[in-house]
Design a protein around this nucleic acid. Structure first.
Lengths: 207, 207
DNA sequence: TCCGCTCTTGACCAAGTGATCAAGAATTAA
DNA sequence: TTAATTCTTGATCACTTGGTCAAGAGCGGA
């Protein structure tokens, strides 16, 4: 039983090369978008020949979907950590901090998603309407509870979450604009974290 | 004097067709990005043959730059209206309202810029570092003055402006995600306006 | 009407791109 | 060692796409 015919084991070379490919694909897709990226670029980026790359992923779109799925989970992780038992203001502040640091440390993943959604989210539309909506609705309910208890200023939870997403990811997605305006000072992200935290905390603290 | 040799007058047909082209180009470039868009699509979109379109704009990039420049001014207009003589909180609230309505009424322009900046802002980098930075610095100084007078909560003016940009444009740029999470209810933009205004106003009101 | 200029287009080209294939090289399990 | 399997690649194809060109159609002023 447990024979290798029904469950084709993944070879060492397979695992290794697929990882190389996904890494190079993130690089290229995040920089040029799906249509702008070429299979050749990805192949060169990971040191494989083009036919060899297409041996692991038969179509360009398969690579794209794989790299999207590969990073989706991590990207949503901080929101999952929003704890209904915690102090509301602290929880929100922690979420903002985590999210902006994720943007700083992994701007390519941010740009990959931004580009995908900007052009209609055709590859991850189902994910957005399914798991993502579920998670957001669940966390929105928590926030709504906090508001009902008078522990947060009354704002729409969904739009609050959108606002946090938008402001934090802005620094990855619109980096050239940010740099053009404030220069590429090394403390940009620190100032951003400080400003956003203050803005949201003060905006949400009940009076 | 004023002869037509040094200043080649623009023909009626020229003006008319260039307008058609720019309109179709906004449509196509905002949907597919620069590399994803094809000259054929734009030509079909405005009912011209491809060679005819290239008679007015010799290269694809010329169309792209033209449509960017054509919409850049309008996009920055609301910020210009920030009045140093006004009531700070009201001025900020009005800016947010104007900006989110602009996003609602012209999402394509928003997505055009988002895509351009997302991919490095190679076509408008100079504009960002020049006129845009100048305008933002000027308005940031106004906000800084308000803070110094104790009329606004102390936050970094540049990052405040980024936050307003990010949150308002989010609804145009990430429309599929917004729709996936909250559905395409007709009052999404109203709720958004309300939430953002409240969040920023409460966050900025001095205590 | 006539003439010069603007406008329009079918045919075409070169480059780039996603994808295929057959054949050989390397790896692995026995 | 050996045989089956996995991995690799040069050559090639079909198709798309930005851009050209020459020739003709349309327009406006004298």
């Amino acid at each position: 039983m447990g024979d290798a015919k029904t469950i084709p084991r993944k070879t060492r070379i397979q695992a290794q090369n697929e990882e190389l490919i996904l890494k190079a694909a993130l690089e290229v897709f995040s920089a040029y978008g799906f249509r702008g990226a070429t299979v050749d670029q990805i192949a060169t980026g990971c040191g494989l020949s083009k036919p060899n790359l297409l041996y692991y992923f038969r179509r360009k779109e398969d690579i794209y979907v794989a790299v999207l799925e590969h990073t989706l989970h991590d990207w949503l992780e901080p929101l999952r950590g929003l704890d209904p038992a915690g102090e509301p203001i602290d929880e929100i502040a922690r979420y903002i901090r985590t999210k902006i640091r994720l943007s700083r440390d992994n701007p390519k993943a941010s740009r990959l998603f931004a580009n995908e959604i900007l052009h209609g989210a055709t590859a991850i539309g189902a994910y957005l309407k399914g798991p993502l909506k579920e998670l957001v609705d669940q966390k929105a309910a928590i926030i709504r509870g906090w508001i009902a208890d008078g522990r947060l200023n009354a704002v729409d939870p969904h739009h609050l979450i959108f606002a946090i997403w938008a402001t934090t990811q802005h620094y990855a997605d619109f980096e050239p604009q940010v740099n053009a305006v404030v220069g590429s000072a090394p403390d940009v992200m620190l100032k951003a974290e400080e400003t956003l935290t203050k803005l949201f905390v003060e905006g949400l603290r009940p009076r």
